[in-house]
Amino acid sequence: MIVRDLRPGVPADTEGFARVRHLALPYILFTSESIRHNALHMPPEARYRPLIAEEDGEVIGTAQVHLAHDSTEPGQGLLNVYVRPDRTGRGAGGLLLRAAEEHLAAQGATRVFSWVLDEPANRAFAERHGYRGSRSAHFLRRDLVGSALPPEPEIPPGVELRTAADFADDPRPLFELDAETMLDEPGDVDYELTDYEAWIEQHWKHPLLDRDLTVAACVEGRPVAFSVAYTDGGTRYATAMTGTAQSHRGRGLAKLAKIHSLYRARAAGITEAFTGNDTGNDPMIAINKWLGYEICATEVRHVRELD
């Protein structure tokens, strides 16, 4: 058993990383291309270090490790460790966690946050290594084939629906909406988007981003609510972000954008959709329930203070 750095240019590494994540966390989309993109385009100040645990030449565990570089509070580290469900109990998780914490400590992190599936073995592992549970979030799934979507709401006067593809020449309005809505995103770590060029490289050019299925509600030509769609090149779809500018909340525009995105996804041959919810985000929980999503798993954010 060895733990080493992921090699972004080696397909066996990126494919192995994506395979482990898909088996351990099937509610989020991962592909070899998305793993490579993240490794190459995270901002340098994030000190991003993807790790893999390898046994007899097979990738059986992974860790995403980086600083919360865009947080308003310095010294916060983020790490997520996952091991193939059929390869647990062999020490890979502990080796990955130790290497990740050592890296974050060397980069000045004093506190580490980690998402942990809300299952007895996973939580026991986290607690055994000094992590305490914090807030929680749900993964939700919707079958786009077996049941009908709710009727599309009427588009309010003065509102126009556009896709991200319509902003291909100038995506800055979408960046500005993303930056505003992120400020209100529930979580233990506060984030602030300020670097447009970094956003372009990391998010706008992300290989999972589906610009044709990402829908924005626009007023006077500017997006004021949106639902960002990721697809894996096959039949799976995931919501990356849904939000509304403060000045236009309470009008149902996020719900409007999200259901239109789902209708477009179904027409494009998508068969299952995933999304996520902080358990305290009641407005979004209500929207997803109305859309027909059902909870399929829960994860708990854990935190540890580093010595």
Rank of each mutant, 00 (worst) to 15 (best):
C218K: 05
C218P: 06
V219P: 00
V219I: 13
V219K: 05
G221D: 07
G221E: 02
G221W: 07
G221C: 08
G221P: 03
G221I: 05
R222M: 01
R222P: 01
R222W: 04
R222H: 09
P223R: 03
P223H: 00
P223N: 06
V224S: 08
V224M: 02
V224W: 03
V224G: 04
A225D: 02
A225Q: 07
F226E: 03
F226I: 02
F226K: 07
F226H: 06
S227V: 03
S227K: 01
S227T: 07
S227A: 10
V228C: 03
V228G: 09
A229F: 04
A229R: 03
A229I: 04
Y230M: 04
T231W: 01
T231N: 05
T231F: 05
T231P: 07
T231E: 01
D232W: 03
D232C: 08
D232Q: 01
G233A: 06
G233T: 09
G233P: 02
G233N: 00
G234K: 12
G234M: 09
G234A: 15
G234S: 13
T235L: 04
R236G: 02
R236V: 12
R236N: 14
A238E: 15
T239F: 10
T239L: 14
A240E: 11
A240R: 14
M241E: 12
M241Y: 13
T242H: 04
G243D: 04
G243H: 06
G243S: 06
G243I: 08
T244K: 10
T244R: 08
T244G: 01
A245E: 05
A245W: 07
Q246H: 14
Q246S: 15
Q246I: 13
Q246R: 15
S247P: 10
S247N: 10
H248T: 09
R251F: 00
G252E: 06
G252N: 04
L253T: 05
L253P: 07
L253D: 00
L253H: 05
L256F: 07
L256N: 00
L256S: 06
L256C: 07
A257W: 02
A257T: 03
K258D: 01
K258C: 01
H260F: 06
S261C: 08
S261Q: 13
S261T: 04
Y263K: 09
Y263E: 12
Y263M: 03
Y263Q: 11
Y263W: 13
R264Q: 07
R264D: 06
R264T: 06
R264I: 04
A265F: 07
A265S: 11
A265R: 01
R266K: 12
R266C: 07
R266F: 09
A267Y: 04
A267H: 07
A267W: 07
G269N: 04
G269Q: 10
G269P: 06
G269C: 11
G269A: 09
I270D: 02
T271M: 09
T271H: 05
T271N: 10
E272W: 02
A273Q: 02
A273T: 08
F274G: 11
F274V: 13
T275F: 11
T275P: 10
G276I: 10
G276T: 14
N277W: 09
N277T: 15
N277D: 14
N277L: 12
D278R: 14
D278C: 14
D278F: 14
D278W: 15
T279F: 11
G280L: 14
G280K: 14
G280P: 11
G280F: 13
G280V: 14
